[in-house]
Design a protein around this nucleic acid. Structure first.
Lengths: 207, 207
DNA sequence: GGGAATATTCCC
DNA sequence: GGGAATATTCCC
């Protein structure tokens, strides 16, 4: 469906930067399929509508989740679960904007704007949340997670460099810890093995 | 389909150790489905066989990849691609054991041994402690030096953020590894302690 | 064969 | 709504 990404060297890093992740790439399959099922679904007469763009064209509505799941989803995706569809919407940053109906919105997902789809990307799972037993570790580095607002780039740049340096140091320390752990593991296994051997021998001798 | 894992405390860390990730769990869907399609496929007469256990029952053969992809795969999985099936086999550690036919084997995947499936698990991409770390460290240091030329601040900022994100992810993974190491250490210590207790008791009894 | 991105499922 | 495991795809 999509063509390969074409590499173009503009000999101009600014152009390259602004084109990054935009017009040369095709949108993720999920977004394209959702856009296409809306194009198709919006053509139906009102009474029969299962899914369509909303009035403003800046979002869409699933009018009948049951029919949507049974009839539409399997034609576009490899499943017929409404919840899996919702999970994907959330992954791509869509918001449910009504409590009364299944209406979703994303800034870059609008009627007639297929070209904007490439600007939408999956939310990546940031390692900010640690399991409880690691919490004390993560709290030491508490500053790190607050920086997501990023109002000031210059200032941020220095902070970032500092943080990266610290992270690398930390990485080295953690790697050392792991190496020590592994070494201890080996020793313990050796001990255990010896202990079991001795046990056998003593029993034999004493018998 | 599968019931929840039942936690059983054997009060004996040796048993616990040997039971690790085994009989209480249900097998991953992929393994169960593959096993089932083989049960079904092996009943067919020889001439018509598309897929079946091999003669020894310690592996299986896809006799006709084309028919297998078209007729069997979509009944058990959400696709009809032979290569996706192969990718899963590799993920679970199966080996292709013949260059003449599509024959695959896994130690714990045998005819009549459905109960052994739970012993098979997905290969996890665990970076082995020493060599890979040293390698990645040196590589990243190299990159850092190059980027210090700083031709483009914006670009650099993005690279830094990217690196920062990756470092945090790496940190979390390392912390997880350490947590696992510590847990194993505890188990081993417990084992050792029990083993030594038993040794003492037996000696005493025999004296 | 396997790394990595995306999709689907399961579960909190 | 989102974390995380498993499945599927894509690419080297």
């Amino acid at each position: 469906m999509c063509e390969k990404v074409i590499e173009i060297n503009f000999g101009d890093s600014l152009s390259n930067l602004s084109l990054k992740a935009s017009s040369l790439k095709c949108p993720p399959p999920f977004l394209l399929k959702t856009y296409e099922l809306l194009e198709e679904g919006s053509e139906v007469e009102d009474e029969m509508k299962i899914v369509s763009w909303n009035e403003e064209g800046n979002g869409f509505v699933v009018w009948s989740p049951a029919e949507f799941s049974e009839l539409i989803l399997p034609r576009f995706f490899k499943h017929n679960n409404f919840s899996s569809f919702i999970r994907q919407l959330n992954t791509y940053g869509f918001k449910k904007i009504s409590s009364k109906r299944w209406e979703f919105q994303h800034e870059k997902f609008q009627k007639g704007c297929r070209h904007m789809l490439v600007e939408i990307s999956r939310k990546k799972c940031e390692p900010s949340v640690f399991p409880s037993y690691l919490k004390s570790c993560s709290e030491e580095n508490g500053m790190a997670n607050n920086s997501s607002v990023e109002e000031n780039n210059d200032n941020n740049h220095e902070l970032l460099m500092e943080e990266n340096k610290n992270l690398k140091k930390e990485r080295m320390e953690l790697q050392m810890q792991i190496a020590e752990c592994k070494a201890l593991e080996m020793k313990l296994l050796e001990c255990l093995s010896q202990c079991m051997d001795r046990q056998q021998n003593k029993v034999r001798r004493l018998c």
